[in-house]
Design a protein around this nucleic acid. Structure first.
Length: 824
RNA sequence: GCGGAUGUGGCGGAACUGGCAGACGCGCCGGAUUUAGGAUCCGGUGCCGCAAGGCGUAUGGGUUCGAGUCCCUUCAUCCGCACCA
């Protein structure tokens, strides 16, 4: 018998699969489809273990569903625009495209070495003109639908990356990519109007039954919908009004000051006439110098300055002073907040610090509050109103509605819904991205590049000497052009699009990747999409996964697709950990997939990574565990080749009734394994237990190593075992299949189990006395409760332990146990 | 602070609907084979105890004939959100 040599057989089968194009997929409306998708990688140069885990999971699903008879779409591509390519250009003088494409080649080689069942004919590479042409086309679609606009705004700026960032890309006040602090800048930038879809993006989370709860919670928090009242305070001395937003209209009678954000436009107005202008300016300057982290931390000291300007609470006519503060955010709500010390802890602290008075407007139903005894605000959302004019005595929730109605009736306010979600800032001052297809004409203004002129090609010959300014802006032949409308000399937009735009629709492009007339044909996209199973890391919970949902909804409204959500089921895999932390170069705990595959083969790598932990949990890398997976595959190899001659000479059918007891047990184990693996893979995504079940079957098979075995059973066992193993370890399964059977294991039908094979003549049940296991007894499986009770009570063990005691009760669970409850 | 998740042998983890806790794998111990090592095969391996038996799923309580699983309490760890008015 020859030894298991993974390097040889894996290469052999990969070449064969590729040359025979076995993973090519065609649309077939007569067959049920299954779209399995792993998040496509950024071509950094090498696969890491997280990729290996991601693709192994996806490949199991794709192969399993194929064997189940589905028409499976399983594509791969590269999210290949982005900063690292440009940084490589700046640092090493290589062209971003060269750097990118050579990385893609290397990563594809590594992906091939994993034996993944991709249809490479469908590859999507976002930095290629045939792809980004349609990214630009989609931008224009958004523009035409009023969903893309340019606006001057305060935006996030990362100085290290030399570009602006979307809100979603700022994590704790720092750049998501390089971790340097993000500054605020006033710039004119392109936005996509994701806020138009805020409500639907929130509402439709309910449709996503196949998504992890925590991803939905994160999106919900990010969208941040709140309901309340927007109403205005009059400023008589200035002849103007200040609108405020509150979710607690029930506390409106308790307002004792009005707080403005330092950036609020009214602050400048006040300064024009105020004798305290210098002081106010100094304060605003001070606030602006606080970092985002300081300003948005709930622990930060609340500070403010009294402008001395009076405004009037429209509910009770009270005069209150306008303060400028550091804790009101300019870009949420109206940038102005009513201050109610008795009902809000922040306002309470602020009032204490500056000696502002408090008015109590809410107290618990069963207790009288006294301001002078209180040490903090009463923030419970429960109670009865006091000191609130005609609303005094009203229950709090009822009062909220009534007060909103009052404001609407009096005409100084209205019910209002607010979101935390901001529009998506998509322009980037970088070179390596899809150019925004807009031209600025001195006569016509902002003009879209006509569809026939798409794509706007990214010029290859640019200089990276310009420091932090985009090389595109210095590329004269790119910048200067003619206006498509009037023919006058004009200039191009030199910003490129956020790469998250490119990745917001790639899963749709896979359905029709070579289409040069449209981004994808409608029949194809509606046949394949939405994605049935999407697999990737949790880190995209509010980035890619939110943007893609937004894109899908816009495309649906434009009539390009017929579905509401892009990803029906989402699986968020855990990280790969070693020595207690995520694998990273800086920690020095990286294990290279390429080395592991070279040493043990891809089948071992895949098997270990799927076996070591449930897919959603973090996975502890263990070199010894890898050895174990390798050992198991060797065991499979040896035992099946041990039976090679038996299997080859075996009939396809055999008489089950002629089997020995051991053979019947093996057959039962086989069918039980089929049942469990099918459930674990198909319903529960428990690949670890699916593999352990296969291991148990192999262990069982080893008990026949020194024994004769019914040839028909040997054949059935070998065939089913290889089919069960095929999605996890495709090469060894294929090799052994080719030695024992005809054709390809991957084109076999997934095995089904025979219910009758699971039947047993006798089963072991547990005998408990007072809930403690005291004996195990063999009974016929179909015994009813009464018969079980009789058998159990008659056993010597039960006799012994119940002697002299009173049997209070006997609980019988068919096929499981008998519990005798005794007293005395 | 709020929200979510997790907590089981020396380790990774099983136990799906309340019914033999620790499947499977790693590690460890023993045996066979071998000149030896490695590889392989077989057996053992939660803790205490010579044993009978007792104790065990973060903590303390509860429901139940029976709880890792259900309910309440406390603790720990991780993740997300966090001045959002």
């Amino acid at each position: 018998m020859d030894r298991y040599k993974p390097q040889e057989i894996e290469k052999k089968w990969q070449d064969k699969w590729e040359s025979e194009n076995v993973y090519k997929t065609e649309m077939d409306p007569d067959r049920p489809k299954y779209y399995a998708l792993e998040m496509f990688p950024y071509p950094s140069g090498n696969l890491h273990m997280g990729h290996v885990r991601n693709y192994s999971i996806g490949d199991v699903m794709a192969r399993y569903k194929t064997m189940q008879g589905f028409n499976v779409l399983h594509p791969m591509g590269f999210d290949s625009f982005g900063m690292p390519a440009e940084n490589a250009a700046i640092k090493h003088g290589v062209k971003p495209s060269d750097w990118t494409f050579s990385n893609i080649e290397n990563m594809k080689r590594q992906q091939r070495s994993m034996g993944l069942s991709y249809d490479w004919d469908r590859e999507a590479i976002t930095c290629r003109p045939d792809y980004y042409k349609w990214t630009q086309w989609l931008f224009e679609l958004f523009y035409k639908r009023g969903l893309a606009y340019k606006k001057k705004a305060t935006v996030n700026w990362c100085d290290t990356c030399g570009t602006v960032l979307a809100n979603e890309q700022v994590i704790d006040g720092k750049c998501w990519r390089c971790d340097s602090p993000v500054e605020k800048k006033e710039l004119s930038q392109w936005f996509l109007k994701i806020t138009d879809y805020a409500d639907e993006l929130l509402e439709d989370l309910k449709l996503l039954k196949g998504w992890p709860e925590r991803v939905k919670v994160m999106q919900k928090n990010w969208i941040g919908r709140s309901e309340g009242l927007e109403f205005s305070f009059d400023v008589p001395s200035m002849g103007t009004k200040i609108p405020v937003y509150t979710t607690r209209p029930d506390t409106a009678y308790g307002v004792t000051f009005l707080a403005l954000a330092a950036e609020h436009p009214l602050v400048e107005e006040i300064c024009k006439t105020s004798p305290k202008a210098d002081e106010i300016h100094a304060f605003c300057e001070h606030v602006r110098h606080q970092s985002d982290i300081e300003r948005t931390s709930s622990e930060s000291e609340k500070e403010g300055i009294n402008t001395g300007v009076i405004c009037i609470n429209p509910f009770n006519g009270n005069e209150v002073e306008i303060w400028v503060t550091n804790y009101v955010l300019a870009d949420y709500g109206t940038g102005a907040v009513m201050g109610v010390p008795s009902g809000d802890q922040r306002d309470w602290m602020f009032a204490d610090k500056y000696g502002i008075k408090k008015i109590l407007t809410l107290q618990p139903k069963d207790k009288q509050l006294k301001l002078e005894e209180m040490t903090e605000a009463y923030v419970e959302k429960d109670g009865v109103l006091v000191n609130s004019g005609k609303f005094t005595g009203m229950e709090m929730h009822k009062a909220m509605g009534a007060i909103i109605e009052e404001a609407e009736k009096q005409g100084f306010g209205k019910r209002h819904v607010n979101y935390r979600l901001r529009d998506w800032l998509i322009s980037r001052q970088r070179y390596w991205g899809a150019p925004i297809p807009v031209i600025y004409c001195p006569h016509c203004g902002e003009v879209l590049v006509p569809e026939k002129d798409l794509p706007v090609l990214l010029p290859e010959n640019v200089s990276f000497e310009q420091g932090s300014v985009s090389p595109l802006a210095h590329c004269d032949e790119f910048v200067h052009c003619k206006c498509p409308k009037c023919g006058a000399d004009a200039v191009r937009e030199t910003d490129t699009m956020d790469t998250f735009i490119c990745s917001s629709w790639y899963y749709l492009r896979y359905t029709d990747p070579k289409n040069d007339k449209e981004p994808f044909a409608k029949d194809k996209v509606n046949y394949w999409a939405p994605v049935d199973q999407y697999i990737g890391g949790i880190e995209h919970a509010v980035l890619h996964l939110l943007y893609s949902r937004f894109f899908t909804k816009v495309l649906r409204d434009a009539g390009l697709v017929d579905f509401d959500e892009p990803f029906t089921n989402l699986l968020t895999q855990g990280m790969v950990i070693k020595d207690g932390s995520k694998m990273s170069k800086s920690k020095g705990n990286v294990v290279s997939p390429e080395e592991i595959i070279n040493k043990y083969g891809a089948d071992t790598a895949r098997l270990f990574i799927l076996f070591a932990a449930p897919v959603e949990r973090d996975l502890d890398w263990s070199d010894q565990g890898v050895e174990g997976a390798f050992r198991f595959l060797n065991r499979v190899w040896r035992i099946l080749l041990h039976f090679e001659d038996t299997v080859k000479g075996a009939p396809t059918a055999y008489d089950v009734t002629k089997l020995t007891k051991e053979e019947k047990d093996l057959r039962r184990k086989l069918h039980l394994t089929i049942k469990k693996v099918t459930e674990d893979v198909g319903e529960r995504f428990m690949f670890n237990t699916a593999i352990s079940n296969i291991m148990e079957l192999v262990n069982e098979l080893y008990s026949f190593q020194e024994k004769e075995m019914n040839a028909g059973l040997a054949r059935e066992t070998a065939a089913s075992l290889l089919k069960l193993l095929a999605p996890f370890a495709p090469h060894i399964a294929e090799e052994l299949w080719s030695r024992l059977f005809e054709g390809s294991v991957h084109q076999q039908k997934w095995p089904s189990y025979d219910e009758s094979a699971l039947q047993e003549d006798e089963i072991e049940i547990v005998l408990q006395i007072n809930g403690k296991v005291r004996d195990k007894i063999m009974i016929a499986p179909d015994l009813d409760r009464d018969a079980m009770k009789e058998v159990a009570l008659a056993t010597p063990r039960a006799q012994e332990l119940t002697a002299g005691k009173q049997v209070v009760k006997v609980i019988c669970v068919p096929k499981k146990l008998v519990n005798i409850v005794v007293k005395g």
